[in-house]
Computed example of a mutant assay.
Amino acid sequence: MDTEVKAIKQHKETRREYMTLAMELKRMFAEGERTGEQKKETMMILEMLREGISKETIARCARVSVEYVVELGKRNHLL
């Protein structure tokens, strides 16, 4: 088995495929993290709107524009 692993590691095409797959998985993981962070931010903004916190305060705390807070609030029937 050790011999087979060494042979595969030295095979250029297999190595290239592995590196391509590794890069794609890394990209997909990073994209998933970004999506999760955006969802978390959205949920926080919506909860703050439900609590009656001002749009300006929400925008400042979430580091987004007031226009974004208003748009999000309207899309979710909170404004």
Rank of each mutant, 00 (worst) to 15 (best):
I45D: 01
S54T: 07
T42H: 03
L21E: 04
L49A: 06
M19C: 11
E17W: 13
A22H: 13
K26A: 01
G32F: 06
A22W: 00
R27D: 02
R34D: 03
T42I: 09
G52E: 08
T42P: 01
T20G: 03
M23K: 14
E17H: 10
I45G: 02
R15M: 14
M28Y: 06
T42M: 07
L21Q: 05
I53M: 13
E13Y: 11
G32P: 09
T42V: 10
K39M: 14
E41P: 02
S54P: 02
G36W: 00
T42F: 03
L46S: 00
L21R: 14
R15E: 09
L21H: 08
T20C: 10
K26E: 08
Q38V: 14
L46I: 11
E41V: 04
T14K: 15
A30G: 06
L49S: 02
T14M: 10
E41H: 15
R16W: 04
L46Y: 09
K55E: 06
R15I: 11
K26D: 04
R15Q: 15
R15P: 00
T35F: 10
G36P: 01
M43C: 11
L21S: 12
E24N: 07
R15N: 10
E33F: 00
S54Y: 08
E41D: 14
K26Y: 13
T14C: 15
H11C: 14
S54N: 11
Y18F: 14
K12Y: 08
S54Q: 13
M23V: 03
A22M: 09
E17C: 12
Y18N: 12
K26S: 08
R50L: 08
T14Y: 14
M48G: 02
E47W: 06
E37N: 05
R34G: 03
F29W: 12
E51R: 08
M43T: 14
L21Y: 08
E33M: 05
R27S: 01
K12D: 00
E31Q: 04
K12E: 10
G36H: 00
E51I: 01
R27Y: 11
R50E: 07
M28S: 09
L25R: 08
M48I: 00
E17R: 12
L49C: 09
M48Y: 02
E33K: 00
K26V: 07
E17L: 07
K39A: 09
K55G: 06
M48N: 03
G32E: 14
K39G: 06
K40Q: 10
E51K: 02
M23Q: 13
M44R: 05
I53C: 05
A30I: 01
R15V: 09
E51P: 06
T14Q: 12
E13H: 07
R15G: 06
T14V: 10
M19H: 15
M19F: 09
T42L: 07
L25E: 07
F29R: 10
I53F: 02
M19G: 04
R34I: 05
Y18H: 10
E13V: 13
T42N: 05
M23N: 08
T42K: 01
Q38L: 12
E31P: 01
L21C: 06
T14W: 14
G36D: 03
K39L: 15
L46N: 03
K55Y: 11
H11A: 13
E31F: 03
M43F: 13
G52N: 08
L46K: 05
F29L: 15
E33R: 00
E31C: 02
G32H: 11
